[in-house]
């Protein structure tokens, strides 16, 4: 495992833990899109179905379990916790996430490595992950004033994507494999979605002012 992949995994892990701790400690989830969190839970469950069939490494298995349980915990807090659920911006979080699920599932049925249950689930999870942040980005834009932790959550998620692309470039040159185009294209789309957010995040950091997205 190269350093880019490891840093990507760590920023990914950190983003989820930041969000979970924010919700746990403050008992609020304002500014957090429940739809995005549910999409991520679906992404993790669909992709990590191989947890019990294919063993890669202890590291991989532990990380998979952590990602599934932490995103399930976030969704549970937002749906069930008596205090947290009341702070959810339901009226603002209106993105039609079922459309994303349906569209990416159809895409996975058409473009996959093999037409098997596992491979379709894998391709579906890759496509869905690429667009799962959309409800969150829309919600951030509606709320305008982004609180620090939510901003950091999206920042770390974006950093994870950037590191993964560096990881693929590194692997392309150091390993003899030919690239899989499904994660490449989906990964580039996914990283591109953060470009706008990164720009405003950088500005707010440089000018040392609170992050505010344009309407």
């Amino acid at each position: 495992m190269n350093a880019f992949r490891f840093l990507g995994d760590m920023t990914h892990l950190f983003s989820v833990l930041v969000l979970l701790l924010k919700i746990y400690a403050t008992k609020t989830c304002s500014g957090v899109s429940r739809k995005t969190q549910e999409l991520y839970l679906l992404v993790f469950v669909a992709r990590y179905l191989d947890l019990f069939t294919d063993y890669i490494s202890l590291y991989n298995s532990v990380m998979k379990i952590v990602f599934i349980t932490s995103s399930a915990a976030i969704v549970w807090y937002m749906r069930r916790h008596p205090q947290v659920r009341r702070t959810y911006d339901k009226e603002q979080d209106t993105f039609r996430h079922s459309v994303l699920v349906a569209a990416t599932f159809v895409l996975a049925l058409i473009f996959n490595d093999r037409f098997t249950f596992r491979e379709i689930c894998w391709a579906f999870s890759i496509y869905l992950e690429a667009v799962a942040i959309l409800p969150q980005l829309v919600l951030l834009q509606r709320c305008r004033n982004v609180d620090n932790l939510t901003g950091q959550y999206v920042f770390f998620l974006g950093a994870y994507r950037a590191f993964y692309i560096l990881n693929w470039i590194y692997r392309y040159f150091t390993e003899g494999h030919h690239s899989r185009w499904i994660p490449w294209i989906a990964g580039l789309v996914q990283t591109g979605l953060y470009a706008d957010f990164f720009y405003y995040y950088f500005l707010s950091w440089k000018n040392n002012v609170k992050l505010e997205l344009p309407a």
């Binding site: 992949r5 995994d9 990914h12 890669i56 490494s57 991989n60 990380m63 998979k64 990602f67 490595d113 894998w122 993964y164 990881n167 692997r171 390993e175 003899g176 494999h177 030919h178 690239s179 899989r180 994660p183």
Partner: peptide, 10 residues
Amino acid sequence: DCLPAPKDEL
């Protein structure tokens, strides 16, 4: 050389 990259990432 022609093998596809393994699915060993998260």
